[in-house]
Structures are given as structure tokens and as C-alpha cells.
Design a protein around this nucleic acid. Sequence first.
DNA 1: TTGAAACCTTGACAAATGTCAAGGTTTTTT
DNA 2: AAAAAACCTTGACATTTGTCAAGGTTTCAA
Lengths: 192, 192
Amino acid sequence: MFEVFQQYLQTKGAFTVQELDMIREQHFIKKLRRRQYLLQEGDVWKHYAFVSKGCLRIYYVDEKGVEHIMKFLTENWWAGDRESLLNSTPSEYYIDALEDAMLVMFTKENFERLCREIPTLNNMVNMLVHRSYVAANHRIHAAISFTTEEKYQHFIEKYPDLLGRVPLHMIASYIGVTPETLSRVRAASVKK
Amino acid sequence: MFEVFQQYLQTKGAFTVQELDMIREQHFIKKLRRRQYLLQEGDVWKHYAFVSKGCLRIYYVDEKGVEHIMKFLTENWWAGDRESLLNSTPSEYYIDALEDAMLVMFTKENFERLCREIPTLNNMVNMLVHRSYVAANHRIHAAISFTTEEKYQHFIEKYPDLLGRVPLHMIASYIGVTPETLSRVRAASVKK
DNA sequence: TTGAAACCTTGACAAATGTCAAGGTTTTTT
DNA sequence: AAAAAACCTTGACATTTGTCAAGGTTTCAA
């Protein structure tokens, strides 16, 4: 399973064989069954976790008990709660597996030591956060100015593989509408 | 004007006197009049810009000609378009001054050279992006699960100084509703 | 200083979305 | 294989929001 992660690394930077070995030495594998939690509200997240197989979601539950999905996490994405990791504060989020999944993981201490020892890795992480920030701004853009239909179209263009892989009511949650509304918008756009 | 920026730097990291001098040498000051543009759609953003005085906004204009405000930028914030800066692509955004403003600026080349020479500065920037990412996630959280009233309350709790400093219709734009809706929601919450 | 522009609110009505309930299908679990 | 749970859609109705129009105030610029 580490091979998937190694391939990912090689697309992100010019790592030497020695560096890849150093990284391999620190990793461990976590298998998750469908519906199993990786993180629960109140936990402090202290890892770096790369999804090598499967699909997860990160979500929170509001005061009324409604779930709101922040993100779907599939192959070649990182899972976790950066805020909890950065500030060592209890997470507001849950992460669970929508399909059986396989993660390449590191403890915070080990991974951050590797970052200090391997500048290429450090640069990769900084670039990753940078790009995540840009992507988050695109999501804000969509949230404040798109119609529901546009949000849905945008979603399936951006994540075509997720349509069919995750239930529609979760896509509705991700774009911020009720399942009924998404169902009606889909029915209306088929007609056109 | 550099003093405001220097004070900011000193709260963010332990810079030596020499390092602060190196930074000072590269900076230049830009004054903006109210309504003046700092960036227009189509431009490639190639600077780092720190707001030492005044208030700006970053926004885009949709196909219907409606403006959507991504962010207000006041004292001690950074102005610019990270996406355009990172990828050297034309910006989708406009930045203009809502009040006369004063910016401490650097060219991309100079600032990034300083980052290579001064690790403390580099760490500061990475931390900044990291925190911006976390803040963007909070905004997504609000956008997909808050009612209009909650979005407005959240806004004035988070940015109490901006209420009174920027027009309400721009706050409406920021939270993603029409000015009329915000006006009604405000009227309704006074009654309670 | 005076006219113009920007700003905020309100009303009336249309459109979009949420809520609650029901039913049929598919998937999962026992 | 049968029962249970999850999933998706639709209808009816209430609520929220958008749109268009108008009017009064404040702010800005010539």
C-alpha cells in the first residue's frame, strides 16, 4: 500500500531514494471498514493520513442534529483536521469511511520531523496547504453566488467520479441544500 | 508607514534587527485613494501587499454583472490574489479601496528572495496561509449551514469594526444574499 | 453649495427552498 | 431468503428569498 503513496510523492517532488526510505520507515497502514470512524468530534487529531484506497467524508453535526459534509476524501487526498492538528484543539468534525478504505499514516511528530529533515517534503506540504486554500476560495465563490443547479453542475464537473460513488443526499449536504431540493433541481434540469 | 508592518512582523516571529533591515530595504509604499483599484480582472498579481491603513475589498463580477465580495481587507491584513500569484494566471478578481489606504508592498521576486534568506519570514508566510485555509473552512461552514440571520450575526461578531465602516449592501454581498434580504432580516431581529 | 449618486428600507408579488409525509426501490444485514 | 435500513422521489404547503419599484435620507463631487 505504501507504493500508492510513493507514486504520489514522486509526482509532487524530486525525492531521492534515501528520502523515500526515510519516509517509508515511519509510515503505518490503517484499514477502515465502511462506516468506521477515523476521527470523532472532541478528539484531537495528531496524524497525517493519506488515502490510498476508498472514500471517506469529513462532516460536522449542527445543533439540530443535521450533518453537513465539508469534504469527500478519495484516493490521493489527505484526510484529517488541519485546524485541530495545528492548534491541538478538539475537533468539531467527524471523519468516517463511506467505503472500506486504506490509509498511509504518520504520527504528527514523525511526519513533522521528516519535514524538517527533507526540505522537498516540507515544500510539498506547504504547496498542498496553499492549493487547498485556493480550492477553499473556489468553494466560497460557488457558495455565495451560484444557484443550486449551478452548484450541482459544478460539483459533478469537478468530481465526476463521486457521482455514483456517494449517495445524492450527501452531495446535497456538501452543496448546502436539502435532499428534496437537490432531487427537484435534478428532475428540472433533465427536462431541459 | 513601515513601522506598522514592522510591529506586525514582531508579533509573528523573532526577527533580528538585521533581518528587519533587509526587509525594510525591499519595501515600497503605495497610497490608494477611495475607489482606486489595486488589481483588476485580467491582471496577473505579482506582489505581496500589507495593509497598514484603510480598508479594501476583493470581489468578482458574475455573468449578470453582480458583484460578489470575497473579503474585506483592513489594517494588518494582506491584500492580493494568491491564486494569481501562485500560478501566474490572470486574476478573476478586483481589489479596490473603500477608504483611502496605505500599503506596504514588495515585488514577488524580492519578497520570495527574502523568504529564502530569512527562514523566520518563510515560516510566517506558511503559517499565514495555513491559518487562512482554516479561516476559509469556517466561512464554508457558515455558508452551507447557517441561516441568513446567523450569517449576519456571525459576521458582526467576527468583524465588529466593519459594521459601520462598510455599507450594509456589501456585507449582504459577503454573506451571499441581496441587500433587501439583509435589510429585512435585520429588521426582524431587532423586534426580538 | 447644490445637484447627483449612493445608500437603506419597505411593499407587492414571484420564485426558490424547506418541511413533513408517504411510497417505492435498492442495498445491507441478519 | 427475509427483514431492516438506506435511498430517492414526489406532493402539499409554509417559509424564505429574490425581483422590481418607490421613496427618503445621507454622502459625495463638481
